[in-house]
């Protein structure tokens, strides 16, 4: 690996073993992985295979069983929490939202890692919030309570919050689970666009082989306790997607 390439790596893991599920079962083989800027990685696998746990480990919410995750060359454990929150964000669509919070208030929370002790917002914060809301097309319902939104609208609001956080690494847990087909296409196009334009690295878990192959640069598959990664165009050839055809009786 040349020096220029290594500078590009945003998130890296070495000999990583992840615990998952309620019983914190450990995955079988440790794996190495590097997320470069400008790339979108699709994370795939059956339900309960440990996709969410993997994302949580990347985000520092779960401690790895073995191995290490480093963010921009520095071990995740060495980051100060607030600085880490300016670089990496995990977005989970299933988060319960408080009934009274408006879209605008929620997206403004994304500026929290940049705010002082009294949680105030600067003009710059307001600009970033508005820009994120425009990018995700949620401005038109900015004052409505999130709880009253449709699932699709809510997914975009969650993304707008993460974009407002201005992170380098974005981890998304099934963002298109509640989206219709046109919106899903639009979402993946948008992910690719912001990854390229903002030099971000994005890992997105999804159940859709179509979107993964069409819009993502790499496909990461968790199957039977092992993690394998291949470029999206070669994943099928290399047998990474064989598990999708397995049938259950």
């Amino acid at each position: 690996m040349t020096n220029a390439e290594s500078q590009n790596v945003l998130l890296e893991c070495k000999d990583l073993l992840v615990g998952y599920g309620a019983a914190l079962e450990t995955m079988k083989c440790p794996f190495d992985f590097a997320l470069s800027s400008g790339t979108v990685v699709a994370l795939m696998g059956e339900n309960g295979c440990g996709k969410s746990s993997l994302l949580k480990t990347f985000a520092g919410l779960l401690k790895p069983v073995a191995g290490e995750v480093s963010l921009e060359g520095k071990s995740l454990t060495e980051w100060a929490p607030r600085e880490r929150a300016q670089e990496i964000s995990l977005v989970r669509m299933s988060s319960a939202v408080p009934l009274r919070m408006s879209v605008n208030e929620f997206v403004r929370l994304g500026r929290s890692p940049y705010s002082g002790i009294f949680d105030s917002r600067t003009a710059e914060d307001n600009r970033v919030v508005e820009e994120s809301m425009t990018l995700l097309d949620v401005l038109s319902f900015a004052d409505r309570p999130i709880a009253e939104l449709s699932d699709g609208e809510r997914s975009r609001v969650f993304l707008a919050e993460a974009v407002a956080q201005q992170v380098k690494v974005l981890l998304l847990d099934e963002p298109n689970a509640f989206l219709d087909i046109p919106r899903s296409h639009a979402l993946f196009r948008l992910l690719k666009k912001i990854a390229t334009e903002r030099d971000m690295g994005i890992i997105v878990s999804t159940h859709s082989v179509e979107y993964a192959e069409r819009y993502c640069d790499k496909i990461m598959v968790v199957n039977g306790g092992t993690v394998r990664v291949a470029p999206a165009s070669e994943a099928r050839k290399e047998g990474l997607l064989d598990w999708t055809d397995a049938c259950y009786e």
């Binding site: 985000a59 919410l61 100060a80 929490p81 607030r82 600085e83 880490r84 929150a85 300016q86 964000s89 995990l90 989970r92 988060s95 319960a96 939202v97 408080p98 919070m101 929620f106 929370l109 994304g110 929290s112 890692p113 705010s115 002790i117 009294f118 949680d119 956080q165």
Partner: peptide, 24 residues
């Protein structure tokens, strides 16, 4: 309570969310 304003605002969405925003 006043010095915990950042936490209180984020806590509305749960502890994992607050953690993700860099809060102790």
């Amino acid at each position: 309570i006043g010095v915990s304003l950042r936490y209180l605002n984020a806590a509305l969405l749960g502890d994992d969310f607050a953690h993700g925003l860099g809060l102790n």
